[in-house]
Amino acid sequence: MAGVAASGRRQRAWVPYAMIAPGVLYLVVFFAIPIYTLFKTSLSVNSGSRFVPTLEFSWQWSNYTEAFSSYQEQIARSFWYALIATLIMIVMAYPLAYVIAFRAGRLRNIMLGLVVLPFFVTFLVRTIAWKTILADDGWVVEMLGTIGLLPPEDRLLSTPWAVIGGLVYNFLPFMVLPIYVSLEKIDPRLLEASRDLYSTPARTFGKVILPMSLPGVLAGSLLTFIPASGDFINAEYLGSTRTRMIGNVIQDEFLRVKDYPVAAALSFVLMAIIIVVVIGYTRVLGTEDLV
């Protein structure tokens, strides 16, 4: 930390508080209080009609049991898809991050730029492009059919794998960047030392590089698992009614069905499971440099 404030500074004690006040106030009003109103909604009962809901707070815990029993399939599916997507992302991102960090030479900054460049095209438009690429009469289906990997009459679109592939595609840069950062931080002198001590590249990788890059893999996993488990765009655009995730249900219940209490309860279930996963994950892999 840059730490100590300028020495001998003639400054009044209230100055830092005045500087943080607007930001803290903003986050309280538009982050903390909304979480509270969401919680209140999740324990309310709708005494109005479906079209003009009137919510009354009444410790309605049954909203949670209803959310669980009606949508356990979608809840389980969300976390399965997010888990599989995260594992695929680790496997795809690691070699790319490794090449950028150690083997790209002068191409390093260009390759880094290429990793983030897709972000500058709207997320929805990119997902629609995947719809075109995976279409039943598209070249990918035709090619896989020709080499016999995809039986005739089988499709890619509307399958769980299309949804998982979409999740991988959309969140991959969030896996590449933290792994790259942790690889790039490794002190080159450590690598020189391992070489001087006659280590082979494979051993150096196993004993030095891989362990030291685990914090990046951990951060990347959280940065991708959290948005992936709450996503509903990929399931809606690339999936079918049999691939609906918890995000689809929350969105649908809030904006179309307008069953606010159950939708709020589901949101809380999603948040709670993510918190449990995050805590469990950091316990297993150590809490070093974690908040």
């Binding site: 209140k40 709020a264 908040v291």
Partner: peptide
Amino acid sequence: LDTFLVLPLTVAEVVIGASLLTLFL
């Protein structure tokens, strides 16, 4: 404050969107 700033990044977007909706409602 450090921790408080990171918290919004650990909440799924759909939850942030829904929670703001309940506030505005």
